[in-house]
């Protein structure tokens, strides 16, 4: 998909700014189908400037206190929909959720990260988004709220394709819920001649459970998740053998797209490179984890 709209201005809309979650949800309910939620606005305004969307209402969540919180509760880091990406660039996130930290560092640039949010990046539902593959690899869940209820679903599966997301018009992804388990992780992005990655790899290794999710992003419409069981990775066996299995799996099962940024075969080559770099970092190179 390529952008190139000629517009400077935004289409007309009515701006709503609820002051509480309750007010937000009833507003969403009332204008369901005619409204778009704005968190950081970076994605939404871009889409509107391209005239890809022209909602009647834009509902800002900037003044909803419940969505601004970043808190740890019950072994879960809950990232409110209006928590800016830059708030996640902290030392404690770096230590406890390295995959998240590194993914965030790879999103756009620091100025944009003062504006954009993690949930917004997820909700934009673009194949080149960095939040989605990272959240999948961390086995995050999404809290989705509407007027009368809320539900919690795995992030994995939430995005169906470009601009398509499994969230109803009267719902909002209110929080991303990231489990705080003992993990090692990384996020690698290969960008060349574009701001977007032509392939990314998010790897989260749950050290106590001895399992991992290696998630490949930007290479297909939705990310590809590879688990230790998929590749028959055996932690008691020789690392080299395991790597070979991973390579074989990638070779047989990963068929990336051809698009403006790269051809399929080159992407495949990059994915192998990033995947091996990632396992090296996560499983072998403890120094990089600090």
């Amino acid at each position: 998909m390529s952008f190139g709209g000629p517009y400077f201005t935004l289409p007309k809309f009515k701006y709503l700014r609820p002051d509480s979650l309750e007010e937000l949800l009833s507003s969403l309910h009332e204008h369901s189908g005619n409204a778009k939620i704005m968190s950081g606005g970076v994605g939404l305004l871009a889409f509107m400037k391209e005239r890809l969307t022209a909602p009647e209402y834009v509902i800002s969540i900037s003044k909803v206190p419940e969505l601004k919180t970043l808190q740890i509760k019950g072994g879960v880091l809950a990232v409110g929909a209006n928590v800016h990406l830059s708030e996640l660039e902290s030392g404690s996130i770096k230590n406890s959720l390295p995959t998240l930290y590194r993914a965030v560092k790879n999103i756009a640039d620091p100025t944009i990260r003062n504006m954009g949010t993690l949930v917004g990046d997820l909700a934009e539902a673009v194949p080149w988004g960095d939040a989605y593959p990272a959240l999948i690899s961390m086995e995050a869940e999404a809290e989705i709220s509407k007027k009368s209820s809320s539900r919690v679903v795995p992030v994995n599966g939430l995005v169906l394709g470009l601009g398509q997301i499994n969230v109803d018009d009267d719902e909002i992804i209110s929080r991303a819920l990231i489990p705080l388990r003992k993990v090692r992780g990384t996020y690698l992005k290969f960008a060349n001649g574009s701001e977007y990655g032509l392939a990314t790899v998010a790897l989260t290794y749950f050290t106590e459970e001895k399992r991992f999710n290696l998630v490949i992003g930007s290479a297909s419409e939705t990310p590809i998740t590879i688990r230790e069981s998929d590749v028959d990775w055996d932690f008691d066996k020789d690392f080299g053998t395991n790597v070979e299995k991973l390579e074989r799996y990638l070779q047989l099962n990963v068929n990336p797209v051809d698009d403006l940024l790269a051809s399929s075969d080159f992407r495949k080559n990059v994915i192998r490179y990033l995947s091996l770099q990632a396992v090296k970092e996560v499983f072998l190179d403890e120094r990089d984890q600090n």
Binding site: R17, M38, L45, A46, S60, P110, T111, M115
Partner: peptide, 11 residues
């Protein structure tokens, strides 16, 4: 620092 082309004035 923020990019003012991507911000609504009301915000």
């Amino acid at each position: 620092p923020m990019k003012s082309c991507m911000l609504l004035s009301v915000e």
